[in-house]
Design a protein around this nucleic acid. Structure first.
Length: 589
RNA sequence: GCCGAUGUAGCUCAGCCGGAAGAGCAGCGGUUUCGUAAACCGCAGGUCAAGGGUUCGAGUCCCUUCAUCGGCUCCA
């Protein structure tokens, strides 16, 4: 019997389906090669993924880059042999005996439900327990490449053995494979860690500590611009902006429950006057104290309290990554306290605000996920239902597509998470809107209603940018460091052709600075070409070259970072041009 | 935290089998005054991540710690 696939696993898109099967088949061919080179290897699982495939092995030693080359060579032999993939169904017993020397396969067989039809796929001498589907023969794997190795826990469980994983990818054509590798190279070129140094935006220092960021002047200018815009739009949307300390007494964190459930992720306490203080991992308890500073009337609600709040979390050492995962970061945090019948409108306003802010930064594509009540939860089911329905309603009213993560909410409330897509199509988790039925209870939050009853308010926790650090990292990668004019730390650099033009260059710069443009003069004793190169590498939007001709006419020769030479124009026209470009941005004037 | 790799000048990196620490860029000094992506000459710059060990001798070999990178797990 020749059967290359079971229909229920077919993917709708025929191209995706072929790609999927090809990658799955490539994983088998790779396992084949590994077993040939390492006869003692125990094989685990080898699925296709969104970008390629992998296979996990238990071998005596980790794979080296040389191993990968040898494996790839053997794979190409197998592909050239064009061996057919043959599917066979078999009984549980024969599967068990066939894989008697493969403990991971044994475990998979044992864990499959009784009614499952077991199947194997063979190609050449290699047989793997697998439900398929595959391509018809190894020759259909057109373009394949092994990429890297990594450790990975068996079944993703950190208490199980660590296996050696090999990642690879496969495409229908060599051209598509090369395009994929080019995308990987492009992602590397956009790496915010390298750009952060090259553009002098931020650094991380061993001496300061892992996951702790210092923002340099240029990164600082950008952060100020982001914060100014954030504050401005939040005031306009009825938020109250507050400030709170970086540390708080143990009792606060005891009440909030952080010490019971979150302590491992908090920085160790410091003792002052025989009292324990903790660095804050979250802003919520501080905002709650502001809420509690008065007896709240229903007339005051909704009360929206927002803060650019810097928090510290002990992230495990292996997870730190540039600005994306850090130990000290600033959340654009807000807590909304409101009445039951205000909930839907508040959630809707948060969504609208999110899309407006994200659009201002150039993000237009989103991936939205609604997460509902998990098995273990706190709070009243009726409140959960009301909250979840309000989240759903806000999404539906706006015609937004969203996925549902059934039972994926936090124990304290349902939530909406929004991922933004960057220029390379990669997803970044930033926005989150979460109900919280835990803290209002723990802190005994109430408001007084029309009848004079004291009632618990709904509390919504939300962050739009997420953390300024991470969002900034995403911005750097999205724009590859070539930020839009309104965000560029230096908007224009004036380049005098010879030293005798320095004075005039300064004159031009002063006019632009007076008009509010961030302008520098490169008055080094270098050739103009060198100065242009420097500005280009710094991705400065505009280079204003000035020499004898320009000095005579109060003009500047405009060159953009795209290499577009627009020729000389009066400085007043340069101002008009820059102003026009800022129209519609947060820096519009 | 786990698996693996890496750590040499401010940055990017070379340094073979253990035998006198290197280059480019950046910096500093000088010369050059130039028309749209790198002028020329010179100078300076190092506790080879930290600590311990092996050795006549360690950047190089071994151990510990720290950090970074690629993943895994995690991100109530």
């Amino acid at each position: 019997m020749l059967d290359h696939g079971t229909p229920e696993h077919a993917v709708d898109d025929p191209v995706e389906s072929l790609r999927h099967r090809m990658r799955h088949s490539a994983a088998h061919v790779m396992a084949d090669a590994v077993v040939q080179l390492f006869p003692e290897a125990k094989v685990a699982i080898g699925p296709p993924t969104a970008d390629g495939f992998y296979y996990d092995f238990e071998v005596g030693r980790p794979f080296t880059p040389e191993d990968l080359e040898r494996i790839e060579v053997l794979m190409l032999d197998t592909i050239k042999s064009n061996a057919p993939f043959v599917r066979e169904e078999l009984s549980r017993e024969s599967a068990q005996s066939m894989f008697s020397t493969q403990p991971f396969k044994q475990e998979i067989i044992d864990d499959l439900p009784d009614e499952t039809t077991l199947s194997i796929y063979r190609h050449g001498e290699f047989t793997d327990l697998c439900q398929g589907p595959h391509v018809a023969s190894t020759g259909e794997i057109t373009a394949v490449k092994l990429l890297h190795t990594a450790g990975a826990y068996w079944r993703g469980d950190e208490n199980r053995p660590m296996l050696q994983r090999i990642y690879g990818t496969a495409f229908e054509s060599q051209a598509e494979l090369e395009a994929h590798l080019e995308r990987l190279a492009e992602a590397e070129r956009r790496d915010h860690r390298a750009l952060g140094r090259q553009l002098n935006l931020f650094t991380v220092h061993d001496e300061i500590g892992p996951g702790l960021i210092v923002w340099h002047p240029k990164g600082g200018v950008m952060r100020s611009l982001i914060e100014d815009y954030w504050r401005d739009i939040h005031y306009r949307r009825g938020y109250n902006i507050v400030y709170s300390p970086h540390i708080g007494r143990a009792r606060l964190w005891q009440t909030s429950g952080h010490l019971d459930f979150y302590r491992d992720s908090m920085y160790a306490p410091m003792e002052i006057d025989e009292q324990e203080y903790f660095l804050k991992p979250m802003n919520c308890p501080f905002h709650i104290q502001i809420y509690r500073s008065a007896l709240r009337s229903y007339r005051e609600l909704p009360l929206r309290i927002a803060e650019l709040g810097t928090v510290y979390r002990y992230e495990r050492s292996g997870v730190l990554h540039g600005l994306m995962r850090v130990r000290g970061f600033t959340q654009d945090d807000a807590h909304i306290f409101c009445l039951p019948d205000q909930v839907a409108a508040e959630v809707g306003d948060v969504l609208d605000l999110t899309f407006e802010i994200m659009a201002a930064f150039g993000f237009e594509d989103y991936d939205i996920m609604l997460s509902t009540r998990p098995e273990k939860y706190v709070g009243e089911p009726e409140m959960w239902d009301h909250a979840t329905e309000s989240l759903r309603q806000a999404l539906v009213e706006r015609g937004l597509e969203y996925g549902i993560d059934e039972g994926g909410g936090a124990f304290y409330g349902p939530k909406i998470d929004i991922k933004i897509k960057d220029a390379l199509g990669r997803d970044w988790q930033c926005t989150t809107v979460q109900f919280d039925f835990n803290l209002p209870e723990r802190f005994g939050l109430v408001y007084q209603d029309e009848q004079g009853n004291r009632v618990q308010p709904y509390m919504v926790h939300r962050a739009i940018l997420g953390s300024l650090e991470r969002f900034f990292g995403v911005l750097v990668e999205h724009y590859a460091g070539a930020f839009p004019l309104w965000l560029s730390p230096v908007q224009a650099v004036v380049i005098p052709i010879a030293d005798r033009h320095n004075e005039y260059a300064e004159h031009v710069a002063t006019q632009l600075r007076d008009a509010g443009f961030r302008t520098e003069v490169d008055d080094r004793s270098e050739r103009m070409n060198q100065k242009i190169r420097q500005a280009q590498l710094q991705k400065t939007p505009y280079m204003l070259v000035v020499g004898d001709r320009e000095a005579e006419a109060n003009a500047a020769a405009v060159r953009t970072r795209d290499g577009d030479n627009r020729g000389a124009m009066p400085v007043s026209d340069v101002q008009k041009m820059l102003t026009a470009e800022l129209a519609g941005t947060p820096a519009a004037r």
